[in-house]
Amino acid sequence: MNLLFEGQTCYLRSLTVDDAEEMMELLLRNRDYWSVYEPRHRDSYFSAAVQREKIRESIYQARENREYSVGIFEYDTKKLIGHISVYSVKRMPFLSALVGYSIDEAYIGKGIATEAVKLMTVFGFEELRLHRMEAYVSPENEGSIRVLEKTGFRREGLLKEFLYINGEWKDHYYYAMIEKEF
């Protein structure tokens, strides 16, 4: 399934194995920035070979209707500036999924993450026919909290010591949107 979603500030498209080098470069550029809110990866993760395998796996997951991962691209340059996924897709009786995203540090504060989340939310509710979309976010990640709230997600609670990041168990907020709020 090749996905393409066009917005005003960016476009989203399915990644192919040809994007592995550019994905590796994106990850390397943001290695320190993203490590504040995400678990650290081994050095081998930052290779084109590993990224090719991850892309192949995401293609398989999309075929199986479990996960949809796409790149976030800048319009003018067609440069890969982030990635976003609708993952952990559950069918009845849940009809739910999680959304997760990361934007290149050089592009934060420009509305790109907000637009990407809106585009994937439309996909989740209109194409996948989900009833509920959810997201986890660090209480320290004020930018990502703003993105979720601007796109209509509501905070439903706090998950204590939810994710192990850089040697510590970190709390995360739990956000969600249900289809009638969409």
Rank of each mutant, 00 (worst) to 15 (best):
D32K: 14
R40L: 09
R146M: 05
S69Y: 00
G124Q: 06
T121S: 15
V36H: 10
T77Y: 14
L27I: 06
L159A: 15
L80Q: 03
L163A: 11
Y87A: 02
I178D: 04
L119I: 07
L98N: 15
L95K: 06
V137G: 05
A20I: 09
L98I: 13
T9P: 04
L159S: 12
L163K: 12
L4W: 03
Y107H: 11
K180Q: 11
V99W: 08
Y37S: 06
T114E: 09
V86R: 06
R56E: 14
R154V: 15
R29W: 05
Y45I: 09
Y164R: 07
N30E: 11
L80N: 01
T114N: 06
V117P: 01
L28N: 10
R13V: 00
A106G: 04
Q8I: 13
D19K: 09
Y164Q: 05
R13T: 08
D43S: 11
Y68M: 00
H83A: 11
I108M: 08
R132E: 14
L4P: 01
R31W: 12
G71C: 01
D43C: 06
D32N: 13
R29Q: 07
N30H: 11
R31V: 13
E126Y: 04
D32A: 12
Y174S: 12
L148K: 00
P139L: 11
K118E: 08
T77C: 14
G71N: 02
D43K: 09
K90A: 04
M120A: 11
F125N: 07
E22C: 05
T121M: 12
S14T: 15
R31M: 14
I108K: 10
M23R: 10
G111S: 08
G124C: 09
I165E: 04
C10L: 09
G82C: 05
Y45N: 07
R132K: 15
F5H: 10
D76R: 15
L130R: 02
E22Y: 05
R31C: 12
K118H: 05
E64T: 08
L163Q: 12
G167S: 03
N2F: 01
I81F: 10
G7K: 11
F123M: 03
K110N: 10
V117E: 01
E53Q: 15
T77H: 14
L15A: 09
M24T: 14
H172M: 01
L12D: 09
S47R: 08
R129E: 03
T114K: 09
G111W: 04
D76I: 15
I84N: 01
F94H: 07
W169E: 04
R40A: 13
G7Y: 10
K150E: 02
V117Q: 02
Y107T: 04
L12S: 08
F125I: 04
L159I: 14
V137H: 05
G167R: 00
E53N: 13
V17I: 15
G71E: 00
R29S: 02
E179V: 13
Y136P: 02
Y68K: 00
T9W: 12
L158G: 12
E25I: 13
F182C: 09
N141W: 12
A113Y: 04
